[in-house]
Simulated scan of single mutants.
Amino acid sequence: MGDSYGGGYSRTSYNAGGGDDAGGFVYGGSQNGSQSGAGKGYGDATLRPVTIKQLIDAEQAYPDAPFRVDGLEITEVTFVGMVRAISPQTTNVTFRIDDGTGVIEVKQWLDADKQDDENSPKNACALDSYVRVWGRVKSFNNKRHVGSHYIKPVTDYNEVQYHLLEATFCHLFFTKGAQGGAAAAANGGAGNDSMFVDGGHGAGGGDVPMSDGLRMVSAKARQVHAWLVNAEGGNEGLHANIIATAMGISVGEVLKCGEELTSAGVTYTTVDDETFAILDY
C-alpha cells in the first residue's frame, strides 16, 4: 500500500512496471487541487483501488463527465478479478472480469508489433485465472467498460486478498475519515459500511429474527447470516472471499458457516459452491 492517504500522492505497491499509462499514484486530490475532468493531464491522475461494483455504481453527472466514487473523481483505477471470457479481435482483446462483486468488460488494445509476443495480453492471461487490471472507466452506448493500459496475471493469491483490503480501507478513509478522526467518530467508527454493504448495520447490527433454521446453526454461522442480510449481493449473492475479507475471518470459516446455513435452509449457493445468498428474509 502507499504511504499516504491524505491530500497528496503516494505510490501503490502494485506498480504496473510498464504500459504507457500505468502510473502508480494513489489516494487524494490532484496535485493542483483541481477536480476538473477537462484537460486533466497524467500529472493530475490518481490511481484508486476499487471493486467492480464500485465501477458499476460510479456516478456520472452527464455523458462524458468524469466518474466519481465515494463523491470523488476517479481517473486511473486498479482491481483484481477472475477472467471469465476472452474475446480476441484484430486490434484489441476484450476480457470479461469477475471479482465477486460484479462483472465488467476490460478492453486491452494491442500493439501490432507485439501480438505474437508470449507476454501479450491474449497469450499471458488464461480463462479462470486471476489478473490485475490498470485502466480507466469508459462508457460506450450506455455500457461501461475499462480501457486497460496494463493487465497482468496474479501469481500470488494473497494479492487478491490484499487488494480487497486495500480497496476497503480506501473506501472507508474517504467516507468515514482517518481512523479515530472526527469523521470516523461522527459515523460511529468504520463498522461494516463498505462497497460490499448497504447503509445498514452490517454483521451483528440490528435484530435478525431467529428462525427455526438459524436456531440449528452455530453462533459464527448466525453472524455470517446477519452480515449477508445487510449486504448488497443481489440474486447472485456474495463470494466467500468477499465475506471473509469484510468480516475479518478466514475463507474456511465462511465456507463452513455457509454449509451450515445452506443445510439449515436459510441460504443457498448461486453461481458456484462458494457464493452465498439469503434464501428468504
Rank of each mutant, 00 (worst) to 15 (best):
Y5L: 12
Y157I: 09
K53S: 14
A219K: 13
A182H: 11
K53P: 01
S13K: 08
A182C: 08
A185Q: 12
P153F: 04
G147P: 00
R222W: 03
T245M: 04
M216S: 15
M216I: 08
K107R: 15
A45D: 13
H201S: 13
A190T: 06
T78P: 01
Y14K: 08
I56G: 07
D113V: 07
D116F: 12
G81Y: 05
I97Q: 03
F196S: 04
K138L: 05
D116C: 06
W227Y: 15
C257F: 02
L165R: 00
A22M: 04
E236N: 14
N32V: 12
F276D: 03
N235I: 09
Y281D: 13
N192A: 12
S250P: 04
L172E: 06
Y162L: 03
R215V: 08
G8L: 12
G33T: 11
G234D: 15
V146P: 02
I104P: 01
A226Q: 05
G188S: 08
P121T: 05
V266I: 10
G202K: 02
I278E: 07
S263L: 12
T75L: 02
C125K: 02
S34V: 11
G199N: 12
V197N: 03
M210A: 14
F174T: 10
N123Y: 11
D116L: 12
A178Q: 10
L164K: 00
L110Y: 04
V26P: 00
G258L: 03
G43V: 07
L279V: 03
V254W: 00
D57V: 04
G213T: 10
A186C: 10
R96K: 15
V154Y: 00
T94E: 14
S148M: 05
T101Q: 03
T245H: 01
Q161V: 06
A38M: 10
D198M: 10
E259V: 01
S87C: 10
Y150I: 02
Y62K: 14
D273G: 15
G191L: 08
A183F: 10
V271Q: 09
A167K: 00
A61E: 15
A221N: 10
T78H: 06
T51F: 02
S87M: 14
T90L: 13
P153C: 11
Y157P: 06
Y9S: 11
N92W: 08
E260T: 03
V254Q: 01
F95T: 01
Y268V: 04
E59W: 14
H145Q: 12
L72D: 01
G213L: 09
T269W: 09
T46D: 08
H201I: 08
F174A: 12
V224R: 00
F25H: 08
Y5G: 09
D98S: 06
M1H: 05
K176V: 06
A16N: 09
V50T: 11
N123W: 11
G81C: 06
G181V: 02
E59R: 15
F169W: 07
D70V: 13
V137C: 06
W109T: 07
H201E: 14
G33I: 13
E259Q: 14
G41W: 01
T78M: 10
S218Q: 12
Q108A: 13
D113F: 11
V224G: 00
G41D: 10
Y62V: 05
F173D: 10
V160F: 03
A183K: 13
S36L: 13
I243P: 00
I74C: 04
L164E: 02
